[in-house]
Design a protein around this nucleic acid. Sequence first.
DNA 1: CGGGCGGCCTGGAGGC
DNA 2: TGCCTCCAGGCCGCCC
Length: 285
Amino acid sequence: MPELPEVETLRRSLEETLCGTILQEAHFWRKDLRIPIPAEEFRKRLTGRRVRSFERRGKYVIMKVESEFCGIFHLGMSGQMLSLPEEKPIYPHTHAMFSFCPARSSPLRGHPIRIHYIDPRRFGLIDCIALDALADYAPLKHSGPEPLEHPDLAEHLAGRAKNKKTAIKPFLMDAKNLVGVGNIYACEALFLAGIHPKTPVTCLGRTDWERLAKYVQQVLLQAVKVGGTTIKDFRQMNGDVGYFSLALNVYGRTGEPCPVCSRSIEVERLSGRNSWFCAYCQKKN
DNA sequence: CGGGCGGCCTGGAGGC
DNA sequence: TGCCTCCAGGCCGCCC
């Protein structure tokens, strides 16, 4: 589910709601996610601590508290984190719940904020590691730059593409090249750039990379502005949907008219993922 | 060695 | 209605 804009939407809500609160409790009903949740470690290292910040690296959220350890959250394909008043699971597949207490000086003191972690398919992850191990953390260690922060994304991508044989779409979705871009935003950026998903990266020239980098950034930024994309599961932390679904040009729109030329949107499988595109507006190579 | 693909899970949709 | 198959926003590891 969640790509960069959905995870950034979550991060902002967490930061706004929880900075300065104390993580009071962490309940785990089910620990067998993508990796087993180190529940004891998580409780021992993180509860009782004041929350400093929530950061994001690609599709991972990092919770920093006043200690030498941090919490890591990933939503996999179907994960959500919801702020709910209940202290027991009210949705199926609620695997964890965190209670945060506002500071004594806050007008909200005495009203814990409860964050429920829900993930039907259990491809997500909750972890706890030392801050000084963050740089070596396996899922992040070999990942590429943040697309919205790199000073010359076009140059970076062109460099990464040298001597590679792959098609542009799986290239964009490979976190080693850049983080945060999944199936939705890869399809949308390629449409806006007028590049066919199967174009070999070797066929792209300087101006193609510049156009593509520009639209990758544009599509991610616009999606962040409207709270991400809700296809099915994704909700913002307060339960709202993400409104970028309304701005999708091609993703999931098989047979619908291309917004530019009105020809039918097509779908093809590429590296095991569906790719939607307009065969007229997006020429191969 | 890099890239494609299956597997990990569950639920929902669609076919019969 | 019910059963079966296929598919889904991510990621890892195997295999060629």
